[in-house]
Structure formats: C-alpha cells, structure tokens
Design a protein around this nucleic acid. Structure first.
Lengths: 187, 187
DNA sequence: CGCTCATTGTACCGATAGGTACACGATAGA
DNA sequence: TCTATCGTGTACCTATCGGTACAATGAGCG
C-alpha cells in the first residue's frame, strides 16, 4: 500500500498490546492484527524486533510522564504541579481502567531486559515529587517518604483495581493519597 | 524412577517458576528443568496442563494466606493477629525480594483466566483486615478504607521494590503502613 | 518519463510452544 | 508370585513463535 503509517503512530497501538498481554504474552501476530501492519513494515520500523518495540514503547511512556508530570513537578510552582500530576495520573490510567506498563514489566523476568528504563521511570517520579514537596516547605526526609508513599500507592491501586475489577477503588485511593500530601500534619 | 515426588511437593517449585517468568513466560520445559519432572509426570499430576498447574499454585498461595493471615485476622485478638500479619507478610515476600504471584497475574491477560481466585485473594484479605480493625474499635468506614490502603500499599511496595531494586524500600514501607494502623488519629 | 528508495506482503526458516500416546518399570495388594 | 495400577521417560504431534529474505509496489523527484 502506501506510507500512511509512521513509527510514532504505531507506538501507542503496540503499547496497548503489551499492556494487555505483557511482554511474553505479546506475539508478533497479535501486534500485526492490532496495528494492521505486516511483519515487513514492523521490522522495517523496528529492526530489533519485539525487544525494540517494547523499548520504544517504554521510551514513549517515559517521555509522556517526563513532559506531563516530572518536568512540571521540578519547575512549576509545587502546588499547581502536584494538582497537575493528579489530573495527569487519573486521565492516563483512565481511573484505574488501564494498568501501568512499567509496573507490569517490573514484576516478571521482563524487568531484567529493561531494568534501566523501568527503574528510571520510578526513581525520576519519586525524585520529582519529593523535590516539589520540599519546595512546598516539607522537610527532605518527610518529602522523600511521602513521595515514595504516593507513587507506590498509585501502583498498588492499579494492581488492586484490576485484580478485583472494582471501578471505584482507584478514584478512592487517589483521594486518600491527595489528602496525605496536603499540609496538615507536621512534616 | 520411583514415587519420590508427590503433587504437593512440586507445587512450590512450579510456583517459583511462575513467579519469575509470569504465566506466559513460563514454559513446560522451564518447569521440567526446575522440578526435575518430565512431561509424563507433570501431566500425570496435572492433566489440565499449564493452566491446571497455575490454578494449583494459586490455590496453594491462597491456602497459605488463609491459614497464616486471613483466618487469624478473623478469629484471633485483633492486635495479635495484625502483628502476626506483618510478620507473615515480611517473611513470605522475603522483605520485598519476592513478588506477589497473585498481583503479577492480575496485571496482564492472565487475570481473566483466573479472575475468581485473583479477586478472591485480595477481597478476602481486605475484608479480614477490616474485620480485625473494627474489632479493635475502628469505625467500619475508617476500617474499610485503611484495610484497602494497607493491602494496596503492600502490593505497590512489591512493584517498586522490584522495579528499582531497592532493598530497603519494602521494609521502610511496612514500617509506615504499620504505623498507620496504630490508633493515634481518630477513626 | 524514469530512477530511486522507502514501504510493504508473502513465503519461508529453525526452534520451541503446549499437549498426546504409549510402553516400560516399580510397586503394592492379593 | 501374579497382577493391576501408578509413575515415568521418550518419541512424536501440530501450531505458533520470533525472525529473515526478497520481490513487488508505490510515491517523490529530477
């Protein structure tokens, strides 16, 4: 046919396949049917095959969070940046209807293959949030602990929401986590 | 050879394989090499093949938690039962060095195959903990919220601990979660 | 128009997937 | 000791895996 597809267009489609089936559960044929691209095109854009596709997907996810979450946390006024983070998280994960690819990859043997990208994602997130909290007047220790607490809470909520198919769980959890970041107790 | 192996002996070995590689990433040959059992024996004990093995493993995990965590939470004095839960959790997950099979299965397409067992595990855990908190004098609402918060925090900690290869994260998180269950704020 | 080159479908590759068939050997009960 | 059964190793099955080769196609451009 013709050149309707570009590499960046395909990545979100491929991402969704990995999200649904995990790295090992994602077969080239599944990607083919979901993207409408044959192996020829797929290997043209991703000469490294499945591994390169997953890498591109992880990079794409990382870039999205860098842009919409981490960077604002580091440079915008902390209150506004944190509010923005909650909005981004809620919409990105579709209120718990969508899981975190990075978290899912972290849990099985896939982790070792993409260790740097996976750990980088979480470390950056925690560091950026911690930074914002410190700029909001928190002590470094309390900020670090709470940042970890929040990021981990989001991941846990995604696991539980999908495990129990409880529609409200994610939103409930976000409310609770939000309130923990509000300055009422002494940090 | 002879009948050294019994079904119950093999299940923990198989469980470890699923834990490392996920459902899709676990191949019969990997199970064979890890357990030392050939396909003949494997299919003798698990005629349903891989799916039956995973089911048996999930049942085994569920039974362990029922015995060491859920049942105590329901019937023992709440303070002691909760203390026991923390010990059980820390040793079972090897301070974060071991992931939660149920949580891992929940995140990808594997969930649908074992939906009842997976959701049952978490629902029972939360309900049992909630029950213990109520018997400790918490309001039902606060108890439900905190039970969810704790179980989800454990899952999140397992994800992050493995993602970032941070040895101390799990223990740190447990300390924090523990303190949230101690009666100081008004519930 | 004709050249070039990115893009694509198709056929094919060896390896391995999950699963089945079956016959051999040990065992235990009679 | 004879025999029915349990446990096991091995050979084999088809389907699919991830990946490669390559020829046809088409757009862009001089």
């Amino acid at each position: 046919m013709r050149t309707l597809n570009e590499r960046p267009d395909v990545i979100p489609l491929v991402a969704e396949v990995f999200r649904e089936f995990g790295y090992e559960g994602t077969s080239l044929s599944r990607i083919t049917e979901r993207t409408g691209m044959g192996k020829g095109s797929l290997y043209h854009f991703f000469p490294g095959g499945k591994e390169e596709m997953a890498n591109a997907v992880l990079e794409d996810v990382g870039a999205w969070f860098e842009r919409h979450v981490f960077e604002p946390l580091r440079s915008e006024p902390p209150g506004a940046a944190i509010a923005r983070m909650w909005d981004a998280v809620d919409s990105y994960f579709r209120s718990g209807g969508r899981i975190c690819l990075v978290g899912a990859f972290a849990l099985d043997g896939t982790r070792d293959r993409f260790a740097d990208r996976i750990s980088g994602y979480f470390i950056q997130w925690i560091a950026a949030l911690r930074d914002a909290l410190i700029r909001q007047g928190w002590s470094p220790a309390a900020a670090g602990e709470s940042a970890e607490d929040v990021v981990l809470g989001i991941q846990g909520a995604l696991v539980l929401a999908r495990a129990t198919a409880d529609d409200g769980l994610f939103a409930r959890t976000i409310v609770r986590l939000k309130s923990r970041l509000r300055p009422d107790e002494g940090h």
